[in-house]
Amino acid sequence: MQTASSPAPLLAARGLSVGLVNRHGAFLATKRVSLAVDRGQSLGLLGESGCGKSITLRALLGLVPHPGEIVGGSVTWKGRDWRSLSKSEIRRIRGKDIAMIFQDPASCLNPVFTIGDQVTETLRLKLSLKAKAARELARDLLDQVGIPAPEERLRLYPHQLSGGMRQRVMIAMAIATEPDLLLADEPTTALDVTIQDQILTLLAGLKERNRMAMILVSHDVGVVAQNCDLIAVMYAGHIVEWGPTYDVLRTPRHPYTRGLLAAIPRLEVSGGRRPLQTIAGAPPTPGELPEGCPFRLRCSSARAECATIPVTLDHKPPGHGSACPIVT
């Protein structure tokens, strides 16, 4: 993936396979996922529900919920294998160098403590600040993420804030340590479109200003298209296409990416309700992956050999690659 002379990427996963357990037994949620992100770069993990994008994000932090585990591959942080790090180093990286925000900020905030209590607690733990300094920094951070009247907001409880404001609070806590990498799992999915636009503009600004890297998980092609330098398209646990956003959207190569882009209604009014192109069937349930290419059952270009071919990207990052050897 990297030549010997070039520096290691900030974060890289190679051949990452994650095993999970549900009521039917153990299954592979991701298969041989490889990705890399560098300082100041944003990567979008795009896919439909159950494709393994969120679990990939957790696996990057080594946070696969028990009894699931990483069963193959490796994750490196600044060139060092996650497994070679000591517990305290991992704690420091997770607490300081990498931050994460989620879809539902309400479930990440404790309803019985004020915003101020929670933000300052984080700052005191992560930055070893004294109470007064933490309070001051908390106010600054809330200001930075565009919360009006931050001093007053610190005294409020989570339920007194709107969803958009709660997400801003989460972002304020996430950027407190000036992390190198922000992992964002559907951060705007629960928000109205004008608030989504505000939050994404805020994240883009922070990325620019702090040279922060970002991995954004989303099901929304538009959100990824507008906010990411690179796109990894996931289907049924595999990355089926990878490349610079512009290339993937202009010249999609994998039949799934092509189908997905054709299926999305556009804002220009076509009139007459001209049928959208569709992909037949539905995404497979996690744990019921077919042999060979996972997309072959819905793919109009599928051939007999698709049942046996291994799924691997033909071109490794940072170029534009597709996991389909049939359609080029």
Partner: peptide, 24 residues
Amino acid sequence: AALLKAHPHLEARRSQTPALAGEI
């Protein structure tokens, strides 16, 4: 106009400022 601008378009890169400030 703000709703249309805030809609995440596939083709356009996002602008530096949000389409609409404040909350409902």
